[in-house]
């Protein structure tokens, strides 16, 4: 555990909590892509199956359970409790164009051809692109609530911090996981355009709206 890893995890946790609280407090999931949230629930489910097979640490187990629990709670709020506020017409990204290629790739390129390892690889690849329905939705409506941009910033920051964590681990522990690193780079790059808008607009007190 190093500082980048810890702050990355906390940033990820902050993102998840911000989104849950935003929906709960406003009693609305307007502007939130339910498809991205389903993909994240799928990511955590397929990644944390090792909860059943190995114990790493209390921290590890607790965080995995919190992430999974919050992911399903978010999906529940969007598709059940506050379904009336869900903006399905704008959430029109075709997720099969992500899930099918990612599934194929995880079978082809993995560390070990075993069910658990393939599912873990699937989750890593899927996470890298799971935000696309949300970004697509924002590009379609041309705007995002400020609280939604804070969520996206924390979520993007988390994987960027993990990149520094992997550099750290490579130098000090000789550890590297090429699948996680390549997918993590892809994931972080997808947020770059958003990071730019966040810094130049949201941090200066303006609402995030895209030019027509």
């Amino acid at each position: 555990m190093n500082i980048f890893r810890l702050t990355g995890d906390l940033s990820h946790l902050a993102a998840i909590i911000i989104l849950l609280l935003k929906i709960w407090k406003s009693r609305s999931c307007a502007g939130i892509s339910g498809k991205s949230q389903i993909l994240f629930a799928l990511v955590f489910t397929t990644r944390y199956l090792d909860l059943f097979t190995s114990f790493i640490s209390l921290y590890n187990t607790c965080m995995k359970l919190i992430y999974i629990g919050c992911a399903y709670a978010t999906v529940y709020l969007i598709y059940a409790k506050f379904r009336a506020t869900y903006d399905g017409n704008h959430d029109s990204f075709r997720v099969e164009f992500l899930v099918v290629p990612v599934g194929g790739l995880s079978v082809l390129i993995n560390h070990d051809f075993s069910p658990l390892e393939i599912l873990w690889t699937f989750s890593i690849y899927l996470e890298s692109v799971a935000i696309l329905p949300q970004l697509f939705m924002i590009s379609k409506t041309g705007e995002a609530e400020t609280i939604t941009t804070h969520y996206l910033f924390c979520l993007g920051l988390y994987r960027a911090l993990y990149l520094f964590n992997w550099i750290w681990r490579f130098y000090f522990e000789g550890f590297f996981d090429m699948i996680a690193i390549v997918a993590g780079v892809v994931q972080t790059v997808l947020y770059c355009d958003f990071f730019y808008l966040y810094v130049t607009k949201v941090l200066k007190g303006k609402k995030l709206s895209l030019p027509a």
């Binding site: 990820h12 190995s54 992430y67 873990w120 996981d177």
Partner: peptide
């Protein structure tokens, strides 16, 4: 480092 099996990263 070992990368398969239980993962310590989240």
């Amino acid at each position: 480092g070992r990368v398969t099996g239980g993962k310590d990263e989240l």
